[in-house]
Computed example of a mutant assay.
Amino acid sequence: MKAWKLDRLGGTLAFVDVPVPQVRPGSVLLRVETQSLMSYLKPYVDGALRAYRAPEHFVPGGNAIGIVEAVGADVWHVRPGLRVVASSHLVARENVSEPGQILIGVTSPDAFGDRLQQSWKDGTLAEYALFPAQAVTPIEGLDDHDLPRLTAVTRCVVPYGGLVRGRLAAGETVVVNGATGAYGTAGVMVALAMGAARVVAAGRNADMLSELARVAGPRVRPVALCGTVARDAAALRTAAGGGAHLAFDMVGHASDPNSTLAALGALHRGGRLVLMGSSAVPVPLDYLQVMFNNWEIIGNFMHAQDAYLPLLALVRSGLLDLGPIRPQVFALADLERAMAAAGRAGSFDLVVVTGPG
């Protein structure tokens, strides 16, 4: 098969012939149909993102949709011919207090993850991909959906995991910080699908916020941030109707903590802040402010193993409308051009790489 292999982060990426992976116990072999590209795939490949760790000589690429070609022993429910979505988020199966975790084909957070990567080092930028059975979810009842657009569920599952962890309930108000980024925009869409009464979309690009509010509907209130914590917190509280129940932070590579602190300051007493972005600087907290307001600060990485099941149900029901997503489709062999497009894509754009068909 054809696959993109990277000898190391910051090294050489080449489109080469490699053997098709062989199934082993507990594994599923997929013929990759579609996958969305991370907007930062190019700097990732170039080794410019210091937080990422990956093995040598591996196939990069995270989540994907594909058809099951074969399954290994000890796989009971997934069968050949099924269309599935594969999640790069893998948590070790042992019943221990802190099981190791990785993003297959993307990164490892620690030394144990490095060991896990050696067992599952290759991702999805190939014609076929081998994944552990617990990381794939059947896609049912969605055959009428445009497949490149449906691939947006692989973006939506990330904020879905954070909103679930933040216990977003129907009728609540949520502030989404970083709403003009790809994951932030997906977070706005998913929060609406989950029943949020009002979503305050916060960011620094006023034009993109206006487009988001126009497309997403009247429950979305855009707030263009100025960078001053007190002024931004007051603007967010006003847009939230006096304060929000939940703040969801999806800012990528922030160089200052101001927007995160403003989102925290926009909360009701007893509100929750979920941190899922990638701030490059520490976030200083006012100890007494947090204590007196009974605020809860929650760090969250990715999502539960079964997160795709309820997320796909939201799509089937029509509650999560993927219609606003604009897929830009590239062939697998055209990865270099696709990476460039992903780097300049807007928040509703989805760069999709397709398999051989």
Rank of each mutant, 00 (worst) to 15 (best):
L288I: 08
D143L: 03
T173F: 04
M194P: 02
L130D: 07
A64R: 07
A14N: 12
A244D: 07
V136L: 07
A186V: 15
L30I: 06
L285K: 08
E56W: 09
V16P: 04
T151D: 05
M250A: 12
V158I: 15
N258Q: 15
P109D: 09
A216P: 13
G26Y: 13
L319N: 11
G166K: 13
S27H: 07
V353C: 12
A73I: 13
S39Y: 12
F58K: 09
G105I: 01
A342N: 08
G355I: 09
A333E: 01
G355R: 02
R272K: 11
T137R: 02
R316P: 10
R214K: 07
D122R: 11
L116A: 02
L212N: 07
L49I: 15
V220T: 08
A169T: 10
P80S: 11
D122F: 15
Q289E: 10
H57D: 10
R31T: 01
L264H: 03
L264D: 03
L335D: 10
T260N: 05
L130V: 02
A234G: 09
L90C: 00
G105E: 02
P222T: 15
A340M: 08
E296G: 11
G11T: 14
F131N: 00
P138M: 09
L209R: 04
L311T: 06
D146M: 10
N293P: 02
H303K: 02
E69R: 13
P222S: 12
G299C: 06
L29T: 14
G187H: 10
V153F: 04
P132N: 02
A206Y: 03
V23F: 02
K5F: 00
G105W: 01
G26T: 05
Q305I: 10
G270R: 14
G72W: 05
M38G: 04
T34N: 13
D349N: 05
T34Q: 14
I139Q: 03
L332R: 11
L246I: 14
R214I: 01
Y128P: 00
D17H: 12
L264G: 03
G10C: 15
D321Y: 09
G141R: 07
V281R: 03
P43T: 04
T180V: 09
Y160C: 12
M1N: 00
A263I: 04
G277L: 01
L116H: 01
W76F: 15
D46P: 02
Q305V: 14
G113F: 00
E172W: 04
